[in-house]
Nucleic acid binder design. Structure first.
Lengths: 132, 132, 132, 132
DNA sequence: GTGGTCTAGACCACG
DNA sequence: GTGGTCTAGACCACG
């Protein structure tokens, strides 16, 4: 699991960090109950501020991706998947909507958009033969 | 064309404004060459500062959605669609990728995700029978 | 002599108009003592405001390109060339300087820059065999 | 690196600021990865509003001269030169064209114009013996 | 401390 | 009237 940050991106570092951890989970690179480095270690390894890592971890916990134990440290949530409740679904829809509006203005029809989604899903197929 | 802003959202106002105008174009509510209200009028109507409107307009112009005509004022770009060049496509992919990673962690498979896209695309179908 | 305006350009219309007339003179399309259309006619022909044409003409006169007679109307200045006095030369240098600084930052060396100048000069060669 | 603004010029302050920073980069006074002052500091030092500095910085960023690093702040772009793509070249040509047309009307031939360019290029030669 | 967003209000160039 | 520039000052997110 390599973390790759763009310190010149508009996207905040803690967001990049969150996204890469979520990617790692989606891809199966890191699995339920697997331990993640401590805030201090991760910050040291990738050369960023403690606050930044802490913020990423806290949000990941709130969103159900990880657990933070006082003793066991930081681990990937034991559940295979997070429940996609209504809140999540409507947030996803609200995020996707403006993307699709822009895509339409760029002449992308539904099929083309779905093909792009398919391409991205393919990139997340489990290499370890493990299916969700 | 109604503009609906959430002043308490962490999403910047100018971004919300941009997204709603792009939605309007995608939906066909506002059409190529149609004139948009002046910065002052729009700012007055929706009760925000004119500089916020200016920022939205300027970014829309840079991204090719509108143009500022010396005689007609602010108008929707005359081209039916903006060319989806490589830059746009890779940006879209980069934006979609973390959304899909999160969706996978929430147990949404490719079909379910595509259905959501389909639903959103449906919402953008032209009511006026005009096809792109 | 065709006037070609871009009403969506950032460049003011009167500036575009001035530049095209100067181009016409440089290229020999319009010659010393030749009459130009009246403010009213030109504005009508190209569909722009009277003020705009008037401003362009007035500046062209101040800079020595044309003469505006009450009776004879607007004519290209009878002198074959305008004297390149020190004021003009230092203004030209001041205009060229930031262009060259940017060119250097883009990796264009002196030779490449001069070649571009040469290309543009070629475009202004007199087709009528008339040399200055 | 001294900034020298003419507050009475019709050239916008942010443009003057941009040009002087680009000059500084071209001349080698400020080098790749070097840090520029923060918007607040620079605004304070040269006695203008911080928003004016921000505008200059933002445009410099969009044009590839600088980048805004989340840890280091505002820095000169690490690449020695910006790629001179087709867009840049045709913009440069479009800017140079009317200058050359006017020069022709002032009796400046190609050689004289090139000599002026040469003089300006000489002014940008690296004093530090560093070659690009 | 740093840049980003937003407001408020002035003045100017353009058409 | 329209957009563009500039100032002034507040507040916030990020690190």
């Amino acid at each position: 699991m390599y973390i790759n940050l763009d310190l010149e991106s508009q996207k905040p570092i803690y967001t990049q960090l969150k996204e890469q951890i979520i990617s790692g989970i989606a891809r199966g690179d890191i699995v339920p109950n697997e331990r993640l480095p401590s805030v201090r270690n991760l910050a040291g390894d990738i050369g960023i501020n403690l606050h930044t890592v802490r913020k990423a971890y806290q949000q990941l916990q709130q969103e159900g991706y990880i657990l933070i134990h006082r003793q066991k440290g930081v681990v990937v949530h034991p559940n295979e998947t997070i429940t996609a409740n209504e809140t999540y679904m409507s947030e996803l829809e609200a995020t996707l909507d403006p993307l699709i509006a822009a895509a339409i203005c760029h002449g992308l029809d539904e099929e083309q958009f779905k093909q792009l989604c398919q391409k991205i899903y393919k990139g997340y197929e489990r290499k370890d033969g493990e299916n969700v």
